[in-house]
Design a protein around this nucleic acid. Structure first.
Length: 416
RNA sequence: GGAGGGGUGCCCGAGUGGUUAAAGGGGACGGACUGUAAAUCCGUUGGCUUAGCCUACGUUGGUUCGAAUCCAACCCCCUCCA
């Protein structure tokens, strides 16, 4: 690590966000002497962002905290084209209305990490649909297309690898990097944005933007990429039993989110503390020294800090309390995820299979039956061995029935 | 437009007329062991009103007692040629 002089690069590099930087010295000097504007692009094919997007969001957050202006660029325009990779499934293109809806809920997530407004370091939310949708093909070819050399584009890894493996590369994909380069220049013109950040796989695209900026606007632009984050065991981040770990509380509750971080692998704890919390490096260094079972304390800190950033301190503390009661004291915490059921249904007697399905612990009755055979389901902490078991009012403990799948997933049924 | 190859379960991939709900692997989930970790081992992995029934091997028809397997048409993907 070279010794950066600007606070921005010091922070990003010491916390492990940096993989590559173009012209680091010039960028460092600029970041030290002035307030930069920088952006990261996000796609909006899903209704919410998930944990995989957290790293770039944190970079924007640090950017703002060190006195610069972040822009989150939504790919409203590029999403309309659809991602050409993954050609096996006939993916439907999203309608404009769906894209708009996704944009709105994603915006809510950003608001938790960044301060938006009109000030000089207030975050900006841009949407490339604003300019991409207007483009006239011929004009675009003449103004932008002439600056791209096919010879050079063919040399980019993303293209070269595909060609070497004789994999199909559509014209659409080939153009993707041109559109992204254009975004960069457009943001430079509109906001004076001089830095694009992104995952290491974006390097080629970003560099294209830098070139285009020089040719089109005589601008000096910069690239900064972050390493691709996988867990120690090599898996991509953000997938669990229940699917993706979304950042929207309606899709993944704060408790579940806390649990996700609590279950971090040992080898990832220190790295994740640096990347996904704002604890000081000294504090993290102390936590990272913990060994064996004690490391669990560090995981709890990670879980609480990471959850606090997204869902607020109160929700995070409550998740921690719920988890302690559930796992360490063996008590049924009332704050576990709760499903309301109809009181009369319980009086009549509710089949466990239906109850489990209703609580969304299982996807089908067959799945529940299998789990019962494997001893993986519990009612009020008692292993369930009879799939015909009927739940009644007599099963209520303190007004709820606790259903458990495995050791970690619990749901309370509460009659209303 | 011509020639050839191919479309199988979450993914990869075997299977060319009869216990095939479909080998094997990956992934995932459950159990054991642990520290709500990793590794390891065991089990499970289409659905339902589960001794049974239904739905499934690109789509639609056909042959047959019986089809993922044979035939026809169509759709889609890949390779080569024009």
């Amino acid at each position: 690590m070279s010794a950066y002089k600007s606070e921005l690069l010091q922070v990003l590099s010491s916390r492990g966000y940096i993989h590559q930087v173009s012209e680091p010295d010039a960028l460092d000097a600029l970041a030290k002497s002035s307030s930069l504007t920088a952006y990261i692009g996000f796609d909006c094919t899903a209704p919410s962002l998930h944990v995989g997007s957290l790293l770039p969001i944190m970079m924007l957050r640090w950017l703002q905290k060190t006195g610069h202006r972040p822009i989150s660029l939504m790919g409203g325009g590029t999403t309309r084209v659809g991602d050409p990779s993954g050609k096996d499934e006939s993916r439907q293109l999203l309608t404009d209305a769906m894209i708009e809806q996704n944009l709105n809920s994603i915006r809510a997530v950003f608001a938790k990490f960044l301060g938006f407004g009109e000030g000089t370091t207030d975050a900006v939310m841009a949407n490339n649909a604003d300019w991409l949708n207007q483009i006239n093909y011929i004009d675009f070819l003449r103004d932008v297309g002439r600056h791209f050399s096919i010879n050079r584009m063919l040399a980019f890894d993303s293209v070269k690898l595909r060609l070497e493996r004789e994999q199909e590369l559509s014209f659409l994909e080939f153009n993707y990097m041109i559109l992204q380069a254009y975004d960069f220049v457009e943001l430079y013109k509109r906001y004076g944005c001089v830095l694009q950040m992104g995952g290491s796989d974006q390097w080629g695209n970003i560099v294209n933007g830098i070139d285009l900026g020089r040719r089109l606007a005589q601008a000096q632009l910069f690239a900064l990429t972050s390493p691709l984050i996988t867990t120690t065991s090599g898996a991509k981040m953000g997938k669990t039993a229940a699917g993706a770990v979304w950042l929207d509380a309606k899709m993944v509750s704060p408790y579940e989110y806390w649990q996700y971080w609590r279950n971090t692998e040992d080898g990832d704890v220190a790295r994740f503390l640096k990347l996904f919390t704002e604890l000081s490096l000294e504090e993290i260094g102390r936590l990272a020294k913990l060994k064996g079972q004690e490391l669990n304390e560090a995981k709890k800190v990670l879980a609480t800090e990471a959850t606090a950033l997204l869902h607020g301190r109160a929700a995070a503390e409550q998740a921690a309390v719920t988890a302690r009661a559930t796992f360490e004291e063996g008590v049924t915490a009332e704050t576990l995820p709760t499903i309301e059921i109809q009181g009369p249904a319980l009086e009549r007697g509710l089949g466990v299979l239906a109850a489990l399905h209703g609580a969304r612990l299982v996807g089908s009755n067959s799945e529940a039956r299998r789990l019962i055979q494997n001893g993986g389901l519990k009612v009020n902490d008692q292993t369930l061995d009879d799939e015909r078991r009927i739940l009644t009012v007599a099963d209520l403990r303190n007004g709820v029935i606790k259903l458990s799948l495995g050791k970690k997933r619990h749901v309370l049924l509460r009659p209303v």
